[in-house]
Design a protein around this nucleic acid. Structure first.
Length: 606
DNA sequence: AGAGGTGGTG
DNA sequence: CATGCACCACCTCT
């Protein structure tokens, strides 16, 4: 590897006043590609302090010192970072984007992100992708990570070691880029990479904007759930107390708990040794079939315990002190298929509104704004139709039929009608289970378990299904076989997923191949859904700007996008939001129409 | 600290 | 409940 810098002696310029800054920018402006990185005292751009902004060429890093001079509003630097003609090499640019936007006042434009590029190149077989790991992998050299830690306690002057470390963070990006970009071209992944680089700006803005949560309303819901939980807990302990030898009474003569209801081993002992009900596990699917009052009480307790523990006070602790809003971490390549993953908190797993736990009603717009929510309808079935080009499924969707009803109608020769769901609810339900199961690569065994019938009956049912949709069967089998033969699968938009192929001598060979086949049946479907939603996010961001709308993308859940838009503009914007969702879908899916429904209101629902 | 079980979402 | 995809959070136990 022929490097343009030395790991032990990187070239850098420490910039501590505006004159030096202007001079540095004049030099940097001559290049069409720059490395950009920041150092700060922590991870939160709202509360932690920006210390350094490094902007570098392939040979030299220019380090703007935010402690020695104010970087906020520094015009030459802002113009440089916002210059759309200069490619900014960044590693997890979303993070730096936030600090730079809030504490420099610049919106970094034209990003190439080495972390995202690596995620695209290793989807499904992901390994470490920190900058240090990439540096080792591509440059066979180690970055000294210990220096980064030292920024957290930074009080006075930056040391020479810290400056060298900071300089290397922009220098290493160039040779990594060279090798990554070559591979992106070889794998035909340049378009997907461009998509991800555009998306990362939307995500950065989305995270900065955050989402408002009505804390008081949330607490009221939890309190009600707690009351109900304690009732079931007491019932449970009283019911099982006679079964245990030592009567647990505490110092005050109050009956205490007999067993820990959250303990799997203790519950297994209770059922198998005390109650005489043999269960393989204590999951709900098993308990629902156990004819014993204790099982029923446990199920009720579990439902409340789940909501309280997973969505209770812990979520409120994540409200940002500065903004009063939630700023979750959206990981745009957090999954093997291209979907987002979300954490801290995971707003993609907030329970759907129910009578007892209307959690989503707590997510509201700011005063004077509305939430505009759009989601794709039956997206995965539309994608399956488009991929398989199955005549009947395409026909079903083109005619706007209810997909599960039409499927049942075809399977059993029942006449399709608008009120089919009312007339043949069981048939429709069975068809729905197959439709959903198929996009997950389900087989007869899985279907039998789902509908509680025998393996033979399930196999017969799938035969009947595939007689109506023969090309779906062909497509699914081919998707699985292609992946096993090639070691990867791909979406129409070009997103790839790789698979670890087992050795033929592997004792689990058959099981692992089946696993790959299922994953490969699902990947083009789920991945296309992700591709489409990501295009929609980019289109929406563009339109918000172009139309001068006072609004923001604030949330996305796989096939759904939420915007927060000024009240008087919300209805007009909702039409545009649908338009962009559909346009994104039609860009990739040509054989069937795309549909998206808007909801405008004061709570998160659709 | 990490694994396994359980269960919330699409 | 190994035999349906993709996740994350919380709990208990080792």
């Amino acid at each position: 590897m022929d490097l343009k810098f030395r790991f032990d002696d990187p070239q850098y310029v420490h910039i501590t006043n505006p004159e030096q800054a202007a001079q540095a920018v004049a030099e940097l402006e001559k290049h069409d590609m720059l490395g950009v990185d920041i150092e700060g005292t922590g991870l939160d751009p709202y509360v932690d302090k920006l210390l350094l902004v490094q902007v570098g060429t392939a040979e030299k890093s220019y380090i703007f010192d935010a402690q020695r001079m104010s970087l906020f509003g520094l015009e030459p630097l802002i113009a440089l970072l916002e210059n759309p003609k200069i490619i900014k090499l960044m590693h997890n640019g979303k993070f730096d984007y936030g600090f730079i936007k809030l504490q420099v006042g610049a919106k970094v434009a034209n990003i190439y992100d080495t972390m995202l590029a690596e995620g695209i190149l290793t989807a499904g077989i992901k390994h470490l992708q920190s900058l240090a790991a990439l540096s080792e992998q591509y440059l066979e050299t180690r970055l000294n990570k210990s220096v980064r830690k030292s920024f957290e306690e930074l009080k006075y002057q930056i040391t020479e070691d810290q400056l060298k470390y900071s300089a290397l963070d922009t220098l290493v990006l160039f040779p990594i880029f060279d090798q990554q970009f070559k591979r992106l071209k070889e794998e035909n992944l340049v378009n997907i990479a461009k998509l991800e680089f555009a998306v990362t700006v939307v995500v950065a803005e989305m995270e900065l904007k955050g989402i408002y949560i009505d804390v008081d309303m949330w607490r009221k819901i939890i309190d009600e759930l707690r009351k109900k939980r304690v009732g079931f807990a007491l019932q449970f302990q009283d019911a099982i107390r006679p079964l245990y030898e030592a009567t647990q009474v505490d110092l005050f003569g109050v009956n205490s708990e007999v067993i820990n209801m959250n303990s799997q081993p203790q519950l297994m002992d209770l059922f198998n040794n005390k109650l005489g009900v043999i269960v393989p596990s204590t999951g709900d699917e098993i308990l629902v079939g156990v004819d014993h009052p204790v099982a029923k009480i446990l199920r009720d307790y579990r439902a409340y315990e789940k909501l309280i523990s997973a969505f209770g006070e812990s979520l409120l602790a994540k409200v940002n002190k500065k903004t009063g809003r939630l700023h979750p971490d959206f990981m745009q390549l957090g999954t093997a298929t291209g979907r987002f993953a979300c954490a801290n908190p995971n707003l993609q797993q907030i329970p759907r509104n129910s009578e007892e736990a209307p959690f989503r009603k707590c997510f509201k717009p700011a005063a004077g704004y509305k939430l505009v929510v759009t989601d794709y309808s039956s997206m995965e079935m539309r994608i399956l139709a488009s991929l398989s080009k199955d005549k009947m499924l395409v026909d079903t969707i083109k005619n706007g039929y209810d997909i599960h009803s039409r499927t049942a109608s075809l399977m059993w020769g029942l006449e399709y009608s608008a009120d089919f769901k009312k007339k043949y609810p069981e048939q429709r339900q069975a068809a729905k289970i197959i439709n959903f199961g198929l996009v997950y690569g389900m087989g007869p065994g899985g279907l039998a378990r789902q509908i509680g019938k025998s393996m033979d009956e399930a196999r017969e049912l799938m035969d009947v299904y595939f007689r109506s949709y023969p090309d779906i069967k062909k497509w699914l089998n081919r998707a699985g076989d292609d992946a096993v033969r090639r070691g990867w699968s791909v979406t129409p938009a070009g997103r790839k997923r790789w698979y670890h192929m087992p050795e033929t001598t592997d004792p689990d060979y058959k099981r692992k191949i089946s696993q790959i086949q299922r994953e490969a049946k699902n990947h083009p479907i789920q991945g296309t859904n992700a591709d489409v939603t990501k295009y929609a996010l980019v289109f929406m961001q563009d339109r918000l700007k172009k139309e001068g709308v006072d609004g923001f993308v604030t949330h996305t859940v796989h096939d759904e996008v939420v915007c927060e838009v000024r009240e008087d503009q919300a209805e007009d914007w909702a039409k545009i939001q649908v338009e962009e969702m559909v346009r994104a879908g039609e860009l990739i899916i040509k054989d069937v129409p795309i549909a998206s429904e808007p909801f405008v209101g004061d709570v998160w629902e659709h």
